[in-house]
Design a protein around this nucleic acid. Structure first.
Lengths: 206, 206
DNA sequence: ATTTTAATCACGTAAAGGGGTGATTTTTGG
DNA sequence: CCAAAAATCACCCCTTTACGTGATTAAAAT
């Protein structure tokens, strides 16, 4: 008997997962949450064997939630759920101990297999996710992990602020903003603002 | 008795919608499809009152599918389903006759209301979608129609080329490129490259 | 036939971005 | 605790963008 907890901000997805997991006699739906905070609250007083976790949550990124869960409850297997256009997150989830990665267009057998595999302590990747994983890990010889500050500055650049304006907003020197900007260019392999914004939007870093 | 057909490439979403629509006695699930082509095939020999249609389909955009359905079967109400970050598609769907727009994190009552409203021939918008719709339609009082040349230059800017590089590629003066760039800024109400690229991507001008 | 729009080029100034390099201080992680 | 990563600031030089203003020509629309 495996107990499964679901975190997803889309009620329809939850409804769908619950609906068919209920048909499986060896699986029990422990509960669900539509936000990271609700999920955290749940695990303060309860537990589960496996968490099916959406990467896009309203209050926290799935990556951070995964990190938090795995550090507090290392025994719980986390399986990431994602839509197709978020390939770049896969590697990060794995780094933080996710036990699997499913795309939301996965069929029922795939989900059951992922849960079963996770229970055995092995990672599971959907066929599609595997392709993406391979593609992105091949591409990135210098892995693009942005620091908190870099993300912050990236967002402000994307909002149209100049380096000076950003420096004033964050109470730091223009040179510092410029340094972060340059580091962003280096990390993301771009050479100017246009490509930076494109990269950021296309990889949903905003 | 309203018959509802569902088109979505995510099996989980379909499962979720079916699961709870079955509980409603005045609604009948006519069927579902995970691709645009399967949907088109279905309506060659069958029909339905309402289609719940995802905007992201593997073989065709929801916008095109909506257009096609409405031109062949104007009596069928199409309700668009979307994730949160696709605001710019809303207006296009409406132009092609969609009867409503729901975000996928809509709750059950909202979906039922959308179906009921669509049956009465009126459009329904989820609260969130309404906000987005309002925001985008307000912005375009002077609708931004870009000339062929402007689009061409916009694309090159988005590919990271500088004005000089663009001028060489198109065999025109740097000043001309600069003029076009200025016109783009004016037309799209932005003030620098970052916002230009963002606007272009978010409104699918690339 | 005349106005509008698109596309072209020009000049000038000020502000911002792009590239390199180096150094200090926190913060974080093992 | 120690090493690594993140965040901070600095200086130089040069390129590019941003903004204004104005002008010519050709094509399209009225």
């Amino acid at each position: 008997m495996t107990s499964v907890f679901i975190v997803d901000d889309h009620q329809l997805i939850i409804e769908g997962i619950v609906s068919f997991l209920q048909k499986e006699k060896h699986i029990k739906v422990a509960g669900y949450a539509t936000s990271a905070s609700a999920c955290i609250d749940y695990f303060k007083t309860n537990t589960a064997d496996v968490i099916l976790m959406d990467i896009n949550l309203p209050d926290m990124s799935g990556i951070d939630l995964c990190k938090l869960i795995k550090s507090n409850y290392p025994g719980i297997a986390v399986i990431a759920l994602s839509t197709i256009n978020q390939g770049s997150y896969i590697t990060q989830m794995i780094e933080y101990g996710a036990s699997g990665y499913l795309l939301k267009n996965a069929d029922k057998e795939e989900i059951l297999e992922a849960i079963a595999t996770a229970q055995n302590g092995k990672p599971y990747f959907s066929f599609e996710a595997g392709k993406i994983f391979k593609a992105t890990s091949e591409k990135r010889t210098g892995l693009p992990v942005l620091s908190k500050r870099e993300k912050e500055i990236l967002k402000l650049i994307a909002e149209g602020f100049t380096n000076i304006e950003i420096s004033r907003q964050l109470f730091i020197s223009i040179d510092t903003v410029d340094s972060h900007r340059k580091n962003l260019y280096t990390k993301l392999h771009v050479k100017n603002t246009a490509l930076l914004i494109r990269y950021a939007i296309e990889h949903t870093l905003l």
